[in-house]
Amino acid sequence: MSTSQWMIYGAYGYTGELVAREAVKRGLTPILAGRSDDRVRPLAQELGLEYRSFSLDQIRSDDLSGMCLVLHCAGPFSATAEPMMQACLRCGCHYLDITGEIGVFERAAALDARAREAGVVLIPGVGFDVIPTDCLAARLKAALPDANHLALGFDSRSGFSPGTAKTSVEALPQGSMVRRNGKLTPTPLAAYTRTIAFGQEPKMAVAIPWGDVSTAWHSTGIANIEVYIPMSPRKITQLKRINWFRGILGWSWVQRLLKQRIGRTLKGPDDGQRQRHTTWVWGEVRNARGEYVEGRVHTANGYDVTVSGALAVAEYLLSRPQVSGYHTPSTLMGWQLVERLPGSGTIELCPREAASQPAA
């Protein structure tokens, strides 16, 4: 395995380009890559970097030749993660991505033994999905080691990139997901709601199929997990109504139309929008005795967290090529990782008596 060369695949997408530009600012020299030569070449030339163009349909050994690490930024990861993970396992290079998709996390975890045999790390979710929530989950578990229930959530108004929006459209027909008694459990959309003070002001919130229902299980071993975002009662009602016809949203032509509209209308938040819209991340753990610990951390905008988080993990692995296996951000670098990212505060914990805990 090389000890220095690494690649950003999907470098000309919204988030991939942000990562590439920040990498250059830090004096890093990744090789940029993507499917389209016409799109990756001008960006690489502007940044003074090498580039490669290849499709994930048939990755050749030469495509990843000399790489010790690939930071995969080309979604939707439901389609692109598997071929890139397999290529990294064959070529002996670490695999990182910025997904929040539960299926990708589960697949990477299933490949743990192969990754250890190959001497590489598989670590999907090295961005806002799921560094802040994963680190908070690990910190809460340390504060209440016998916790058997974990709830996480975040309040972010940064808007969507095209890739994130398309991933959300793909997920709608499947409904939501929680973990119950150690197993991933599908639920209807908006099946779980509650009021949460993500920062200071209590807000109505709804459970969503966020990646932590997979990753937090591997990080903490807690058997019951939900993840929430704030949503108005009116929108929660609308989301529940989607359950009546969400099967139709899975039809290929409906998906195609929705994604085409996203491609025409969404560009992703600009620098000013990202600076204005920071994020509160919240969590709580409870045990069988009713003891309860709540935690919060304030972070930069989700996309800025993705940039700084992905590069933090990449730099860590570039200096530690001997690490291997499937990891989450907290199992690889500890819960303190989120506190080290630009724009992040410290995790604040608030233990409470059993009588103060929220209703289940």
Results as ranks from 00 to 15, higher is better:
Val121Tyr: 02
Ile59Asp: 10
Arg114Asn: 06
Arg289His: 13
Thr331His: 07
Gly325Thr: 03
Gln45Glu: 15
Ser214Leu: 06
Arg114Phe: 02
Ala360Lys: 12
Arg340Val: 00
Ser156Ala: 15
Asp97Gly: 05
Glu46His: 09
Val213Arg: 00
Gly272Pro: 00
Thr15Arg: 08
Leu184Cys: 05
Ala165Cys: 10
Cys68Gly: 09
Leu18Glu: 00
Met1Ala: 11
Leu32Thr: 05
Arg157Trp: 14
Gln238Lys: 07
Gly13Asp: 08
Asp97Val: 09
Asn224Ala: 06
Pro321Gly: 08
Thr265Asn: 11
Met67Pro: 03
Pro358Arg: 07
Ile131Gln: 01
Leu152Arg: 01
Gly103Ala: 13
Ser176Thr: 14
Gln336Ala: 12
Gly283His: 02
Ile131Ser: 03
Ile208Leu: 14
Asp63Cys: 09
Leu32Tyr: 06
Glu226Gly: 00
Pro233Ser: 12
Gln260Ser: 13
Leu317Ala: 07
Gly343Asp: 09
Cys88Ile: 06
Ser324Ile: 01
Ser53Gly: 13
Arg21Ser: 05
Met333His: 02
Ser36Arg: 15
Gly345Glu: 11
Ser344Val: 04
Ser4Ala: 13
Met231Ser: 14
Trp253Gln: 11
Leu69Arg: 04
Pro83Thr: 13
Gly263Pro: 02
Arg179Met: 08
Val126Ile: 14
Asn181Ser: 13
Ala142Ser: 14
Ala110Gly: 15
Arg246Glu: 12
Asp63Tyr: 07
Asp62Cys: 07
Pro202Gln: 12
Val281Asn: 09
Pro186Cys: 10
Lys203Leu: 15
Gln45Ser: 14
Thr215Met: 13
Trp280Arg: 03
Thr3Gly: 14
Leu189Arg: 01
Asn301Pro: 00
Trp335Cys: 08
Gln174Thr: 11
Asn287Lys: 10
Gly163Leu: 06
Leu152Thr: 04
Glu284Val: 05
Ala191Val: 03
